[in-house]
């Protein structure tokens, strides 16, 4: 066998391992979730009770789906202006300057901070600060969790958009300048439109990260298993209810937690698919 063939076989094998692992995950999630869906039917997704008391067990995923979607969307909206400006700053306005290098390193550093550290900071620094500003529930709740999430996803959106913005061909920009366009006209009429699919991809990636984020959210959202009735009320997310309760769960409760895991998997999958579709459309 020549080395080309060996390489091919190795590559094929490792890709199959990835496929196999992903398939196995879906299989075990579906298998584990069957008892919950059998007992509660499709109503599991739309029911807002979460009652683990023995004898009157009744589980529904809606409070957690609501908590997850609200925190992630809010986080995305908060991070959007910040990371968009940062990526323009790094990729165009101050491109190549020492300041951009320092800022770029800081952004990468943010991405490397473990989520538990964000959680600690949120718990001991951000939350007391928000309480000073008059936030109810001692600062625990959807709003605080969203702010932390926003900070966590900024580096993802920023560095991806930044890379794409830097890749916009110089010829395009020069052509615009030669026609007498100002800097901001070049940015918003040439650079952003030609980089938009990449920029959107960056935001979808960071949205996916916000959906699945666990530790930092758990420490700040208040872990109340109800649909949040406002921005400042406590709630819970899908990832955080699983982290909190799987340890002692068994039977129907364990199955319900796995079902929530499956739903989270599906939601993330759908969002990725939508993102890919948008990118395709724009290209």
């Amino acid at each position: 066998m020549n080395s080309d063939k060996i390489t091919k076989v190795i590559l094929l094998l490792s890709s199959f391992i990835i496929l196999f692992v992903a398939g196995g995950m879906v299989f075990s999630l579906v298998k584990g979730a069957i008892p919950a869906f059998k007992t509660f039917g499709a109503g599991f997704v739309f029911s807002n009770t979460w009652n683990p008391t023995q004898g009157s067990e009744n589980y529904g995923a809606l409070p957690f789906i609501a908590g997850t979607v609200i925190t992630s969307v809010t986080a995305l909206l908060i991070s959007l202006p910040l990371s968009f400006s940062a990526s323009l700053f790094l990729g165009e306005y101050y491109r190549g300057t020492r300041m951009a290098k320092v800022l770029g390193t800081m952004v990468d550093l943010l991405a490397g901070i473990p989520s538990i550290v964000y959680g600690l900071w949120g718990f001991y620094v951000l939350r007391p600060f928000l309480v000073e500003l008059g936030l109810p529930n001692q600062g625990f709740g959807v709003f605080t969790a969203s702010i932390i999430l926003a900070i966590m996803i900024i580096p993802y959106a920023t560095s991806l958009s930044n890379e794409i913005i830097m890749m916009v061909p110089n010829e395009l920009k020069e052509a615009a300048y030669s026609l007498g366009a100002t800097k901001s006209e070049v940015v918003f009429n040439v650079i952003v439109p030609s980089a938009r699919s990449g920029i959107i991809a960056g935001y979808i990636l960071s949205f996916g990260r916000a959906l699945g984020e666990t530790m930092a959210v758990t420490m700040l959202i208040g872990n109340a298993n109800v649909i949040p009735d406002g921005f400042f009320s406590t709630g819970n997310t899908m990832a955080s209810v699983i982290a909190n309760q799987f340890g002692e769960a068994d039977g129907l409760k364990l199955s319900s937690l796995i079902a929530i895991g499956l739903l989270l998997f599906l939601i993330t999958g759908v969002i990725n698919a939508v993102g890919k579709f948008i990118i395709k459309k724009l290209n």
Partner: peptide, 15 residues
Amino acid sequence: GVGKSLQWPVGMGAK
């Protein structure tokens, strides 16, 4: 009711 985990009428949770 009684249990190791409950449906709480009020409050926030910690682990």
